[in-house]
Each structure stands twice: as C-alpha cells, then as structure tokens.
Design a protein around this nucleic acid. Structure first.
Length: 859
RNA sequence: GCGGGCGUGGUGGAACUGGUAGACGCGCCGGACUCAAAAUCCGGUUCUAGUGAUAGAGUGUCGGUUCGAUUCCGACCGCCCGCACCA
C-alpha cells in the first residue's frame, strides 16, 4: 500500500491531527454542574483493569460507547463520557511476587501504556475526569463511604466459613481452589470459620428484585439472571418438637415451599453444620465422624454433582404437627445446606426426588400424598418423585385440593396451632468483603482488645497503603509489616491494631460511576453534580458482569442513598451488553498455540506456518492470551488506522453478539475508508453546486435515498443496530460511484449526499468524517461540533410503489403504481398482470393491502 | 434438573406491528484498466431444471392457525448461555 500512498487518505497523519484538534477545542470536556440548559446524557463503558495492554474487547466496548456519546452530542445533548481505571487487584500482587516489581509502579505504568493506546482510538472521553481506584483520593472516599454504611447499620462483622490454605495461611476464593487444593501451595484446603466483614445486601433483596421492573432499557436476560440470583421463594417455616430434647435443643424449624405435602413426610433432615447436629456429635463419636466426613468433602461443583446422598440417623424423633402420635426420625444429611433456609428440611419422598433417593437408600417409607389429576386408583411413586400439579390425597383436611390451594390451607392450620408461619426466603446472601490481600483498599477499622472494632476517625482518613512492604512471604504483607498496623485505639488510647484485610475489589467498581460526576469532590460525591448527571443513561459492558458487578452497584446506589450520598435508587437507566471478540485458534504439530501472524492461511480452513509446517486450525473462540488467538489493537491501528478498526468492529454483526475478527473483514473496512475519501475528493473537486429549481429523476432519486438514509441510520443508532447503520451508509455510498456528472442538479444532490455521509459516519469513524468534511466544506468547523442531519419528511415520501401480486398467496408478479392509489384501479391492474395465471378462474376473494400487496384467492 | 435464548445462501447477517425472503458486507465468478500484478471500476452470485423469458423448491424437523408464516401456536431435534442437592 506504500507505493500509492500519496493518492490515499493518510490516516497516520490525519488521526493524530484530529485528536489534537478535538482536545484543543475541548470538545468533550463538561463541567461537574453545567451552566447551560442542554439536556444531559451520561454514557459510560465499564472501566478497564490495567492489565498491561488494550485488547480487542476493549476496542469494541469503547467504540460502542463512543458511537452513542458522539451521536448524542450531535443530537444536542451535553454528554458526560468519562474514563478511569479499576486498578486494584491480584495481578499486580502476582507481578510483585514473581517479578519483584512494586504493585504501584506496575499498575501506573500499565495505566500510562493503556491510556496512550486508548487515545489512539479517538474516543470522545473527558480525560480531565480520569482517576484510578488505587489513587488514595479515590479509595479514601471509599473508606468514608464504608464508615457511613457502618454507622447506618449496613455493615456487620461475623464468623463465616472460608476456604483456608494452611500452607500459605490465607483465605482463597472459590476460583482459587482447584480439586480441593490451593492453586499455589497445592495444600488440601480446609473449611475454616473466620471473622469477616459483610455488607448487608440482603436487607435490600426485596428492593433489588422490585427495582428490576423499573429498568425497561436493560436486557431481559440480565434482569432474569439477577432475579434468579436474588432468588425469592415463598413458603413456610414449620417447627417440629423433638420427642426428647438433645443438648438443650427442644425443636427444629424447617423451611419448605411445599407445606401442602406435610402429610407425606417420612423423615426430618438437618445440615451437618446444624446446631442440633453439633449437639448430637457431642455425645456420639459416630455422628462426629460423619459430620467431619461431610466437612472434608469438596465444595466444587463436580464434587457436589457426583456426591451420593448420605445420612446419619441421630436416634432422635420429632412429632408431626398434624398427626397425633406420629414420630418421624431425624437424620443428618449431606445434601442439606446450612446456608439456605433454616439448614433443616422435612423429607417428603413422594414429591421430591432428593428425598426419594434418600428414602430408598435408607429404607424409609414413601407415603403418596400428591397424584396426577388423571392418575388411576393404584397410582404409586417408585423411583421418580411426582412434583407436578395434581391433587392432594391421603392428607385429611387437604384431600381433593390442588397443591396451589393446599399451601395456604396448610399454612393457615400451622398458624392456628402455632407450629409454623408463612415465610419468604431469599437465595441472596450478605456480601463478604474481606480479602487477605495487599493491593486493595484498606478497611478503615482499628481492633482494640478492650473496645472491639473501632472506625478510623474521619480526620485520619484516608488509611493509606504503606509502600515499604515485602512480598518475601506468601501471606498478606500488611499483616507482617513491622509498624503499619500498630496504632492507638481511637476510643481508649490503648495499643491496638489496624484491620489488615482489604476490600473486595468489586467495591471499587460499585460507585465509580458516581465519582465520575465530581472526581475532585472533597466528599465521596458532590450532591449537585450527582443529581445533575445520574443515572447513567447508557451503560455498556460485557455480559460477564450481569450479576455481580451490576448487582453490587445497584446495592451501593441504595446504600449511598440511605447515607445521603446519592438521591436515586437505580444507577444505570440503560444497559447494553456487548458480545465478545473471537478469532480462530491455531496449533502447530507439537500442539503449541500459535499467534495469527505466525500462520499463513492457505484456504478457508487450512493454514501453514511461515516455514511451511502444518498448522491445525482450531475453534473460533474468545481472544485469549493463553490460546494466542489475539490481535493487538496497536498493530491494527498502525496498519489500517483507528477508523478502520472501529468500523470493522461495528459493521459485521449486531453488537450484542460475538464478532469474529478476520483479516478479510478488516481489509474490507479499510477499502471502504479509502473509497469514502476518494468519493469525497472527486465531489469536492467539482465546482460548487447550488440547489437547482427542479431536479431530474436521477437527482430526485439520490436525494430521496439521502434522506431515507438519514432516517434509517438515526433509527439504527437509537437502537444499537450499528450493523444496520453501516449497511445503510454502504448503500448510499454505493449510489455515489462514477465520475462527477456535468448536470448541476446531480452535482448538488451528490454534494448533499457525501456531506450527509460525513455526518452519519462521524460517530463511528470520527477522524475520516472530519477529514472529508474539511475538504468538502472548508471553514465550516468540525463535525464534532455540528448538529446531526435531519431527514426532510418531504423526501421520505415515496411517490411510486411496487406492489406484489399474489394468487393464492404465491407471488405471480408485481405492479408499479403511484403511492396511495385507490383500491379498484390497483386490483384491475393486478388482475391484468396475472391474467395468465388466473386463466379465468373464479376469484373467491380479493385481498388488498395498500401499497403492499394484492392477493387473489382463486378456486 | 431448572430458567432463558438461538437455528435463514459458501459466509457474517437483513426482513417494519404476519404482506415481494436473502438488504448490506465478506468470499467467489466474469469483464474493464495494466506488458503484468496490486489497487480501482463495472456486472453476476439461494438451490434445482432449462440456451432462454420461465417453472419448481426453499428460513432446523413435523404439524396447526391464516387469503398469506422467517414472523403466531404445539411437538420434536440441535446448539449456546445462566443457575443448581435452593428444600
């Protein structure tokens, strides 16, 4: 491409030039509290973790957001479009341990690299609002928030079961436990109870669920995932009296969603961690051994899936609440979870598969209390429980009712006899936020041996991470720092120690969108700025954050509301979740992964190395470093320019789906960039054309297409159908081929068309848009500061329409008529058009849809 | 197992609230320009039969509703995603 470079649009010169021009003009900077009366629009993309380099997923994510931001600006909105860094996290610590680099140095160096890379994409960020979550100015405000939450009763410190690595002396996340062993040490991981800080997100469970209904601009899929995660379930708590108390415990309460099946109960089962189980274990070595065996069992998904149902009979029995003199055995069972419900269930084997499996294994009775409506007299349950709708049988006062009717009836009876009540249960659990890590926000708490945990006084905030730390031991450097943790108790002044755990990094990203509205505020938020800009009007990010991040941010918004930092409940009014960027993967003969630029494609499905060795072309999957199927955005921008990269990630398919990065596709995008520049040059070279009094048919057609394209692209951008916007622009550009005509009216409509294209492509290819607009209308300013084109309704009206003519629903011809013509005339025309097919057959019915279709129903 | 989504040419994908299936891109084929190539420009491209205007088939499979179904309904097949001994 170098030999003819002088004839081409030179992106390498133009792109940095326009980026500098936008920056100089301050196009994208806004005030915390703007003075004017333009309507606001807040566009936000999920901020990146500074891992080292930008990848194609970032390019796609930020390009999608940038299209919205630039489009909304052109539509007259004042747009807040900030960028920052989610900068705390484990990779920085790993770099410190493995390569002896200070996490701070590593992180800020990565930020510097990635900022430079991002700027080359030409994104319309207000860079003046940039911050990193590892800046003390940010995390200090976060500590303030935590203390306010604490004061408001939203924080709790309590014992919690964790994965404990006995060699590394640290808590491991579930993802860090591999086949029951620590990922670094290889030691068998233990379950241990540790004091951990929790945020009481469960208090907001009903609100977080109900709030989903107020989010029409969120994907249904994401709302459903959150709904399932929050997991509301309606049922009842039933209290069973023990026939004989054990360890001072007199009764056991279970949670059930099927109180209608109480008469089908054949046992009661408790979790191994249930207090009653401990009481039994105190006097039974066998029980203690069973409980220990359960605790040692892995908690990985695979282990759970293959786990056999196992139980231990305690020797205890409980009374049935409805049946006099009925006693049911109490078992400790490995499939009952302490964390859900009350940690105890009643077993009804006929209506629950797990209970049935358990009953069969231990020879417990299986009374049948629900039967299908159409069941015969001798309906029985053998190896498959019946949990469908049906009719209650063998259940005294519930007989004949459906399960749905029987539930309230059973609950009413339980309430009447004081044995139970209606209860709503949630799957959502409180958020454990303690991490035994260095590179995170210090938890601003001081532990005093006499006063207990004390908040760090406001005057002493922020609690800053010490820099002189050592990673020579595997445990948390904060813990074995010689001086940092030793302080005086703020309450009594006695020697005390700082909390050495840091926050889960999900906290950092739970409120950054609010901080962006006033990044320099002395408090966590500036209420006026937050009130002006929030909620985020359009949030864009990966679907992998559908649950945790988005749920935490929704919770934080409510907690910040409760503590006076924000005035709203839902942070993100609109959410768009984009698909991944994928690429083919390649392996050499020895099974090593190869980078795309190490292979030469020899056909659609085959490839060889540069040396000619055989290459296995693998699956198309998400770009990942481990599989080496990555393409470096920097290299792409060097070769093709940012606009080409942007255009490609937008053009091929809908943004919510995965896009496959292909060299052919990129080249197609690059050709279009050059073609547009060429068309613009041709047209600009033509002498000025003024609007002629009348237009020829050809000129009229072009003008109609131009205005239809404005309307279609506008509609497409409003609905995230960016691939359709691209297609419509291709279509209009396609109509502009050929040499510049002599006719004045055509010169005018062509000029109008290309000028329109310059504006329509601007959100997607902003540099090229500026470049061609500058050649077309020198001195008319930058596209970035110009208004979006308006489609003239007069030019959207079609004066001629082609109507399909069908016989019995089959297309037999078309007629072209003036639009909006009357029925009779068109029917007659249509009949002529298909006379041969009708061949005089009797017409039973004539269907006429104006300007669309005529259908003759012939017998 | 539960919940949700998706199946359209060689390929990525279009098709408004049921109304001419395949827009637009990629690829491929043919042509122009060129000593040649690249780039560019023009034309063609769902399949089958036919030189041909044309005819038939066609949106995972089977059935239904309708004048008319990619679109609505039912069953099935396949793929993808989320959750999961959740009581």
């Amino acid at each position: 491409m170098s030999e003819t470079a002088e004839q081409r649009y030179n992106f390498a010169i133009a792109e940095p030039r326009w980026q500098a021009a936008w920056e100089k003009a301050g196009c994208f900077a806004v005030a915390d509290v703007p003075a004017g009366d333009r309507p606001k629009y807040y566009v936000l993309e999920m901020f990146p973790y500074p891992s080292g380099k930008i990848h194609m997923g970032h390019v796609r994510n930020y390009t999608l957001g940038d299209v919205v931001a630039r489009y909304k600006r052109a539509r007259g909105y004042e747009v807040l479009h900030p960028m920052g860094w989610d900068a705390f996290g484990l990779p920085a610590e790993n770099a410190a341990r493995q390569r002896k680099i200070d996490p701070r140095t590593w992180t800020y160096a990565n930020i510097a690299t990635m900022r430079t890379e991002l700027k080359r994409i030409g994104l319309s960020f207000d860079w003046s609002r940039e911050f990193a979550t590892c800046d003390p100015a940010y995390y200090g405000q976060q500590q303030k928030l935590f203390l306010d939450f604490w004061a408001a009763g939203l924080v709790e410190r309590r014992l919690s079961a964790v994965n404990w690595d006995p060699v590394d002396n640290t808590v491991l996340a579930n993802e860090q436990v591999i086949e029951g062993r620590g990922w670094l040490s290889g030691a068998v991981v233990e379950k241990k109870n540790l004091a951990q800080w929790f945020l009481k997100i469960t208090r907001y469970a009903p609100e977080l669920l109900a709030g989903l209904a107020e989010l029409p601009r969120w994907p249904e899929r994401v709302k459903l995932m959150q709904e399932n995660w929050i997991g509301r379930s309606e049922g009842a708590e039933v209290t069973f009296a023990l026939a004989r108390p054990a360890g001072g415990i007199e009764n056991v309460t279970v949670y059930t969603t099927r109180p209608d099946t109480l008469f089908g109960m054949s046992f009661l089962a408790i979790a191994p961690e249930h207090p009653l189980a401990h009481a039994v274990a105190a006097t039974s070595a066998e029980a203690a051994a069973f409980i220990a065996a359960c605790a040692a069992r892995g908690t990985s998904e695979a282990a759970i899936e293959t786990a056999e149902k196992e139980g231990f009979f305690t020797g205890l029995t409980v009374r049935h609440p409805f049946i006099a003199d009925a006693y049911l055995p109490v078992w400790i069972a490995n499939f009952v979870l302490m964390e859900y419900g009350t940690g105890a269930i009643f077993g009804c084997p006929c209506a629950d598969q797990r209970d049935l499996d358990f009953s069969r294994k231990y020879d417990l009775p299986v009374p049948v209390v629900v039967a299908p409506r159409d069941a015969d007299k001798d309906f029985g349950v053998f190896d498959k429980a019946f949990d469908g709708d049906g009719v209650i049988i063998n259940s005294e006062f519930l007989n004949g009712l459906s399960p749905r009717q029987a539930k309230p009836a059973a609950i009413a009876k339980l309430e009447a006899i004081g044995a139970g009540k209606s209860v709503v249960n949630w799957r959502l659990r409180d958020w454990g936020i303690s991490r035994q890590r260095y590179w995170g926000c210090p938890i601003p708490v001081i532990h005093c041996p006499t006063c207990g945990p004390q908040p760090v006084p406001a005057a002493d905030l922020p609690v800053i991470l010490p820099e002189d730390v050592s990673f020579d031991r595997p445990t948390n450097p904060l813990d074995h720092h010689p001086t940092w943790k030793h302080v005086a108790c703020p309450n009594c002044g006695a020697p005390a120690t700082r909390e050495t755990d840091t926050f889960d990094t999900f906290i950092d990203s739970s409120w950054y969108f609010a901080r962006f509205t006033a990044p320099g505020a002395a408090a966590p938020t500036d209420p006026a700025a937050a009130a002006h800009w929030l909620p985020v009007d359009q949030y864009v990010g990966g679907v992998e954050h559908a649950i945790l991040h988005l749920l935490y941010a929704r919770f934080f918004t409510r907690a910040m509301n409760a503590t006076g930092h924000l005035g709203l409940h839902e942070p993100f009014a609109g959410l768009f979740t984009q698909g991944m960027v994928t690429h083919e993967s390649y392996k050499d003969g020895d099974g090593n992964w190869l980078y795309p630029d190490e292979v030469v494609k020899t056909s659609e499905t085959t490839a060889v190395t540069a040396e000619g060795a055989a290459v296995t072309v693998g699956r198309i999957e998400k770009m990942s470093k481990s599989k080496r199927n990555t393409v470096d955005p920097g290299a792409i921008i060097d070769r093709y320019g940012a606009d080409t990269a942007r255009w490609f990630v937008l053009s091929d398919n809908p943004p919510e789906r995965d896009v496959e990065w292909t060299e052919a596709g990129v080249q197609g995008a690059f050709r279009f960039v050059q073609r547009l520049a060429r068309i613009a040059a041709t047209i600009a070279a033509a002498p000025d054309a003024t609007a002629p009094a009348s237009l020829s048919a050809e000129a009229k057609k072009l003008r109609q297409l131009t205005h239809r394209t404005i309307a279609a692209v506008t509609e497409a951008l409003e609905t995230f159908a960016f691939n359709l916007a691209v297609a419509r622009i291709y279509e209009l550009a396609g109509a502009l081929t050929g040499a510049s005509p002599a006719a004045e009216d055509l010169r005018f409509t062509r000029f109008e068309a290309i000028t329109t294209i310059a504006h329509l492509v601007a959100p997607m290819m902003p540099h090229l848009a500026e470049e061609i607009f500058a050649t077309l209308r020198p001195g008319a300013g930058m596209v970035a500061n110009r208004a979006w084109p308006e489609a003239d309704p007069a030019w959207l009206v079609k004066d001629e329409v082609t109507i399909a003519v069908q016989v019995n629903g089959k297309l037999r011809g078309t007629i072209t008529v003036a639009a909006g013509q009357d029925k009779a005339a068109n029917l007659a025309l249509a009949r002529d058009a298909v006379a041969a097919t009708l061949a005089g057959a009797a017409i039973a019915k004539e269907i006429y849809v104006p300007d669309r279709i005529v259908n003759f129903v012939a017998r």
